[in-house]
């Protein structure tokens, strides 16, 4: 079985979670409709690392008894170390736009809305940004609307910001001091030119090594125990990537 592109993204995000230079990730929370970040978090756990996972949309065994209110209170206290965010638009300063394009509140194209991004981005020591679509309409020089800023003025309480941006073409690391992304690795099949052409914002690092494939051990974990954990929440994803369906539900 060849490596599915999603498996490569999952493996890459797992390595970012385990990055020894980043603040420690003892408690990871994953929001709604996030199968790839959820799988990466499960992979870290199944590799034997002692991390607590709070998967918000798990239908059974949900960790909360006060819904999202509890999630945000946990984050406000600093009890969540790592969260994942995306955006309809993401710019070179790691600003996120989940609200819409054109005039406020998204008269050209309305996205669903900010969800908790304007809070979570400030409250967790690190955020991994994930957006599979890598195109000039998503990765823009400047977002039309800032739902959550990547950087804050001095004095504004903030525990962290983006660690990295993972797309379907590459991984960018984020330098909060410079306020710029740097190309960290490009996925197989991509060139420095193909990434440059698909990216609307300026970034550092003309070229970078190819994103490493998941190891045999990681692939075995993904296709077995990680998929087992994911089946109930993400049946379509498991069917698409691992050709597995929930026998109980079938």
């Amino acid at each position: 079985m060849s490596i599915h592109p999603h498996e490569r993204l999952i493996g890459a995000i797992a390595r970012l979670i385990l990055d020894p230079l980043a603040p420690p990730a003892r408690h990871i929370a994953v929001g709604a409709a996030s199968p790839i970040p959820a799988a990466a978090s499960w992979l870290v756990r199944k590799l034997g690392h002692d991390v607590r996972l709070s998967l918000l949309h798990r239908p059974t065994g949900n960790p909360f008894t006060e819904g999202t209110r509890e999630l945000f209170d946990l984050a406000g206290q600093g009890r969540i170390d790592l969260f994942f965010l995306g955006g309809g638009q993401i710019d070179g300063q790691a600003n996120l736009n989940l609200i819409g394009t054109g005039e406020w509140p998204g008269r050209a194209a309305r996205f669903p809305g900010s969800f908790g991004s304007a809070f979570m981005y400030f409250m967790t020591p690190r955020t991994i940004l994930f957006r599979e679509e890598h195109s000039p309409r998503v990765l823009v020089p400047r977002v039309d609307i800032v739902s959550a800023p990547g950087l804050s003025a001095p004095g504004v309480f903030r525990r962290g910001t983006a660690q990295a941006l993972v797309t379907g073409k590459c991984i960018f690391s984020f330098n909060a001091t410079a306020g710029r992304f740097r190309l960290a690795s490009r996925h197989p099949g991509e060139t420095q030119d193909s990434i440059r052409a698909a990216t609307g914002f300026a970034y550092d690092g003309a070229d970078a090594p190819v994103t490493a494939d998941p190891t045999e051990e990681e692939l075995a974990l993904l296709r077995g125990p990680v998929c087992d954990e994911m089946l109930a929440t993400y049946p379509q994803f498991c069917r698409q990537v691992w050709h597995r369906s929930d026998e109980k539900a079938a």
């Binding site: 406020w104 809070f119 739902s147 804050s152 003025a153 504004v156």
Partner: peptide, 13 residues
């Protein structure tokens, strides 16, 4: 009070 949000365009509106 609530932390965060400062710098978001939500606050501006």
């Amino acid at each position: 009070p609530l932390r965060g949000v400062i710098g978001s365009d939500i606050l501006a509106h």
